[in-house]
């Protein structure tokens, strides 16, 4: 029983990280029908920036929670800047190109960013400082859920609520929903579609960076390649929930995280990634619209 709870907890943690990344995928896909293949790299860059900032701050004598907050903040700002630039360079010129073009461009960008970090920093794994302190009140259940895990769950929950509020009630949120419904119409009624798309990338990138910081301090090491797998899995989660659907992405991520955790715990951890891909393939074949998505008929 305890083993089951442990697995459930680690599954939820995984799931909420996937969710943070998956939201970026799903928002971008919802608006411009592009699989932003480089989104995983933005998450990786977020983690790297947090690592560098916290390293520098530690050396200059900052401590504890202030480092965590500052590192996360700067990582989020930078991830946003990267997401924004990425869209401007690699996707905007291809707005009217055939469908495969932006996808290939995205793959190119993903390779580029990975190797940029590899060359600028290091090909090796870097130890990530554990920025999250141990809370005393977690002591009784520490064998099931640690402080870091609690922080991850709480942060993800807060972030997702904030995102929901943003999309439901703010001006930019309304503009995003309008653009998702019908880009031409949104443009006609005065929405600056280019800005909305940029904002979508920025918001998605910030979420991914938060995920990156949390993962870094949870797992304790990062390298240039972590974005690839995380990206693919987050995409799986987004598809699982129904791509373009924001609550769907969160749900899909939690389902995937739990499923993966149980599979790793009860079957074999070597085939963990196979399992994730297997889920993706099955979903796409059996229910391409995802758990919460609506089937869309192609217009003829």
């Amino acid at each position: 029983m305890q083993y089951f709870l442990e697995l459930s907890c680690s599954g939820l943690v995984r799931g909420s990280i996937y969710a943070l990344i998956a939201l970026g995928y799903t928002m971008v896909y919802g608006i411009i029908q592009l699989i932003n293949f480089a989104h995983g790299e933005v998450y990786m860059i977020g983690a790297f920036i947090a690592l560098i900032v916290s390293g520098v701050l530690t050396i200059y004598g900052f401590s504890g929670f202030s480092i965590l907050i500052l590192a996360a903040l700067i990582a989020a700002v930078y991830a946003a800047a990267y997401g924004y630039t990425l869209e401007k360079i690699a996707y905007r010129p291809l707005r009217n190109a055939p469908r495969l073009s932006p996808l290939i461009s995205a793959i190119g960008m993903s390779l580029f960013l990975q190797n940029y970090v590899l060359l600028a920093q290091t090909p090796d794994f870097l130890p990530f400082p554990s920025l999250i302190p141990d809370f005393d009140f977690m002591e009784p259940i520490a064998h099931i859920m640690g402080s870091a895990e609690l922080v991850i769950l709480v942060t993800s929950a807060i972030t997702m609520i904030a995102l929901t509020v943003l999309i439901k009630y703010t001006r930019i949120g309304k503009a995003m929903r309008a653009t998702q419904q019908d880009m031409t119409m949104a443009r006609l009624v005065g929405v600056n579609v280019d800005n909305v798309i940029s904002m979508t990338f920025v918001i998605g990138s910030v979420l991914a960076a938060i995920g990156g910081v949390l993962v870094g301090s949870y797992i304790g090491q990062i390298n240039f390649y972590i974005g690839f797998m995380a990206g693919v899995k987050a995409f799986t989660a987004a598809v699982l929930g129904g791509i373009g659907n924001i609550p769907g992405a969160a749900l899909g991520a939690l389902v995937l995280g739990l499923a993966e955790s149980y599979a790793a715990g009860y079957v074999s951890s070597a085939y963990e990634d196979v399992f994730a891909f297997g889920v993706l393939v099955l979903i796409l074949i059996l229910r391409p619209a995802g758990l919460l998505g609506k089937a869309v008929k192609q217009k003829v």
């Binding site: 010129p93 190109a97 932006p102 290939i104 461009s105 580029f112 960013l113 990975q114």
Partner: peptide, 10 residues
Amino acid sequence: FGAVMVLMMI
């Protein structure tokens, strides 16, 4: 390679 893929597409 990455840069080439992006630039070629554009």
